[in-house]
Design a protein around this nucleic acid. Structure first.
Lengths: 262, 262
DNA sequence: GAGTGGTCTAGACCACTGT
DNA sequence: CAGTGGTCTAGACCACTCC
């Protein structure tokens, strides 16, 4: 009853979990596997595509298929926001030792590579509504990419938007050279007198775009989590909107909700 | 440079977005489409698989492919937890009017169908660690399924675990006939003197299992969000662990994080 | 150049649906 | 029964990697 490629995939899964095929090891060639399991090549490739979507193997064009090493999960905890807020007013020397991404992964700051680009863009309809400003208002768009130094693929891609006018009081904020790490965005906002009151995060899962497949090094049917973070200041104004794309197979989001006592 | 099936998919996407192919309408047969786009059938099927994974079409075996109607998003907001806690002590009459799922979707209680099964199970290693009890401890396992009355597919699947001993004080809680809706789990716990202090939710995205594909009516490469909710009471004890599976294409999770003032 | 996976084709046969 | 999508095969040719 089960389909042929599912049965083959199940047998391969067992060989992997039994340790017969070890992590990092190369699988036999697809043609050889097809012969071994008495199937056609496309059917064997369907089976391998299943394992790929489950994150059990890596496919490398021109080289082979490999048993995947157990991955390191990047954890993103909403307590990071309070932590970042607390840090916003401490000394620069203290801040330099650790940044927000390290807080998530437990890595030290020296393990991280960080890239950022700054651009001024007009607000589209979506962002104009979020910020409650007219369409076309000048925004500062910052694009981030965070990754482990040893790793080839980033943990996340982020696009952050701020209304240009609200932060123009501090010229440093418009300079990509003075990137906000490890000070953090809340520290930047502090320099222009903005205090955050609460943060709303919306999360959906969807298949990655072609750019995200390339930039995050995704393979097969693995999907991404799209997180939109909206920061609201103490006057109720939206001051930052950020879209973060997280690889679904390497990320765990953690949210703690405190409850009022009876 | 772009692959053939990607170019075909892009053309079909445009025809759908332009409204040439309307929502609910049947697409031409795959063989006809293959001829129209001068491709082989498998290539056309690859293109359609892409649209399927993006949620743009539905495939129905033996009938045809259909342009998908814009889906209703189920929203799950972490403010629901405080809302549920507040409700735990109000009168039954008041509680009967609305339940937690209605709070998410904006539907009224009469639009919902709800199914539950109760079972006693021994704690496996994972759950024993979560609850900090010995492996094999008796747990009450409740399985839920929530959906719209008109819809054929559920919004979510949930498996909730409670330590049997901690709730044995109220026999009603062990009876599937007195299901916890619309009272809610926090109301149940209130009857045995438990007050929740905070809730931790962990979220990952992954491809669905075969059971989840069937039960949630998922198609193609659509993945699910797996949410593990852990409820901690005022003494710091874990009193409930729930695993919720949410269809990635129909769900939006919303988390609000309040920040302490300076 | 030899070996690998990636894309695409042409077509057989099966399973499901509605008449 | 006719028409639909689902699975599987056999094989050509291309793109990438390493020697």
């Amino acid at each position: 009853m089960a389909k042929r490629y599912e049965r083959i995939a199940e047998q391969l899964r067992q060989r992997i979990r039994a340790g017969e095929l070890e992590a990092g090891q190369r699988l036999p060639a697809e043609t050889a596997l097809a012969q071994e399991y008495k199937s056609s090549l496309p059917t064997m490739r369907d089976a391998l595509a299943l394992l790929l979507s489950e994150g059990l193997i890596d496919k490398k064009h021109g080289i082979g298929n490999f048993v995947r090493k157990p991955r390191q999960l990047a954890r993103r905890d909403n307590r990071r926001h309070q932590w970042e807020k607390n840090r916003a007013r401490v000394s620069e020397a203290e801040r330099l030792t650790t940044g927000a991404t390290e807080h998530d992964t437990g890595l030290t700051v020296s393990d991280l590579v960080f890239e950022a680009t700054y651009r001024e863009v007009p607000a589209d309809e979506d962002l104009a509504e979020q910020f409650d400003v007219p369409v076309g208002t000048t925004l500062l768009k910052r694009t981030y990419r965070t990754s482990g130094r040893g790793e080839d693929t980033p943990f996340n891609l982020a696009r952050s938007y701020l209304v240009h006018e609200t932060i123009a009081g501090n010229p440093d904020l418009l300079d990509a050279g003075k990137e906000p790490w490890p000070g953090g965005t809340q520290n930047q906002l502090y320099t222009v007198g903005i205090e955050l009151d609460h943060i709303v995060e919306r999360i959906t899962a969807r298949p990655p775009t072609v750019e995200e497949i390339e930039e995050l090094g995704l393979q097969g049917g693995i999907s991404v989590m799209a997180l939109r973070k909206t920061c609201i200041d103490t006057s109720g104004r939206v001051v930052e909107v950020a879209d973060v794309t997280l690889p679904g197979d390497r990320t765990e989001l953690v949210f703690t909700t405190p409850l009022e006592r009876w």
